[in-house]
Design a protein around this nucleic acid. Structure first.
Length: 371
DNA sequence: CAGGCGTGGAG
DNA sequence: TCTCCAAGCCT
């Protein structure tokens, strides 16, 4: 029985809440790079970067990205490889490709004139209900909620809403409440104030509700049950996968292959990987690996060795998977590429490719980290 | 709808 | 070392 909110505030209380929140925001709101103006392009880039990513991580990426792609037209016209390079290390790489697709949509489908409502903005690739609400309210003043993790947490506590925020159907409950309490004349500031509140006094860990500017409106605080909210079911643990990672070297450099556009680390470059869990039980020795590696270079018969005279296990944990990789190396006399997309890359040009963090760990295990 | 999709920081 | 994240979206 996920009940709706049983005690909505009076109009008077709503106005008092708005006043307390916005006066605090005007005084104490964070001065962030993307708050210099309300340019929809700036708002879009920052909001996409901020998805599942902390503010302090985003700031340097944002500066670099805007410097490199100053306008929506510049982003639309850029080579995809440059966009991915600007995203390197930020994670969730489909965001970068979707962001460029959205830029192309604005330029081509809308002739460079931004759609100005959340409903229209949500048609852009990579822009869902939250981001559409954020852009529409901040850049265009549309009175629509922007329901992100902060808004879920803040309003779950304010109203003691016990709907599970991990379930998509809960979004509407929160959106309805927010719609009722947001001021129609400052929707963008209101949504941003909620985010600031959710990252300070009403943060997930170690909150300080007593000193919140809206403490008097916080029912979870008044009832001393703050940490019971929001209600959120837990995610599954990462599945462990075992790989052989092949460091194949020639006079032309190291062999890299580009990952498929769909799925994990799409379009990024890595050493060839062989899924150890797929190999027959009897084939865990170098012979099996060698035969599998032949698909990546013209010449088979490579002699693979455990890197660094051992069996280094490189570990990397993603949201849903943990990779445990045994790093093997081989020297080959040929520089022919049998299957594309693949490239030989000299050590001094490693930074010309977009490499995921897991690949950087493999390079580090070979003593080849850059910078 | 449930599951896939990265990373670095904090406790 | 381990857990849980932090301004979600796509299929």
């Amino acid at each position: 029985m996920d009940k709706r909110v049983d005690k909505m505030w009076s109009q008077t209380k709503i106005e008092q809440f708005q006043k307390a929140l916005l006066e605090w925001y005007d005084q104490e709101g964070r001065d962030l790079p993307w708050r210099q103006d309300h340019d929809p392009y700036h708002v879009m880039v920052s909001e996409i970067m901020l998805q599942q990513t902390q503010v302090q991580t985003v700031i340097p990426y944002y500066h670099n990205f805007i410097a490199k792609f100053p306008t929506v037209a510049a982003l639309a016209a850029a080579p995809e490889a440059e966009v991915l390079k600007a995203w390197e290390g930020l994670g969730y790489y489909s965001r970068a490709r979707n962001l460029q697709t959205a830029a192309k949509q604005v330029v081509q489908d809308y002739d460079g004139v931004w759609p100005q409502t959340a409903a229209e903005l949500q048609k852009l690739q990579g822009i869902g209900p939250y981001t559409a609400g954020a852009i529409a309210s901040i850049a265009f003043g549309e009175p629509v909620p922007a329901v992100d993790g902060n808004a879920f947490r803040v309003f779950a506590r304010l109203f003691k809403i016990d709907a599970d925020i991990a379930q998509p159907k809960s979004r509407g409950i929160f959106a309805d409440v927010i719609q009722q309490v947001m001021p129609k004349d400052r929707p963008g500031d209101f949504n941003q104030a909620i985010m600031d509140l959710g990252s300070t006094y009403m943060r997930a860990k170690d909150p300080d509700p007593a000193h919140s500017p809206v403490a008097a409106f916080d029912q979870s605080y008044l009832d001393d049950v703050v940490l019971d909210y929001p209600v959120k079911t837990k995610k599954a643990k990462p599945v462990v996968k075992h790989y052989f990672a092949l460091g194949i070297h020639s006079e032309a450099g190291w062999l890299f292959v580009q990952r498929p556009s769909t799925g994990m680390l799409g379009d990024l470059w890595m050493f060839p990987l062989i899924n150890q869990d797929d190999l027959p039980e009897s084939a865990l020795e170098a012979e099996a690996i060698e035969s599998a590696s032949a698909q990546f270079a013209e010449e088979s018969g490579l002699t693979l060795e455990f890197a660094n005279a051992g069996a280094p296990l490189v570990k990397h944990t993603f949201t849903h998977q943990q990779w445990q990789m045994t790093l093997l190396t081989a020297e080959t006399p040929t520089t022919t590429l049998k299957y594309l997309p693949a490239r030989w890359v000299p050590v001094d040009q490693l930074d010309s490719l977009t490499l995921p963090t897991v690949q950087k760990k493999l390079l580090a295990a070979l003593g080849l980290e850059q910078k």
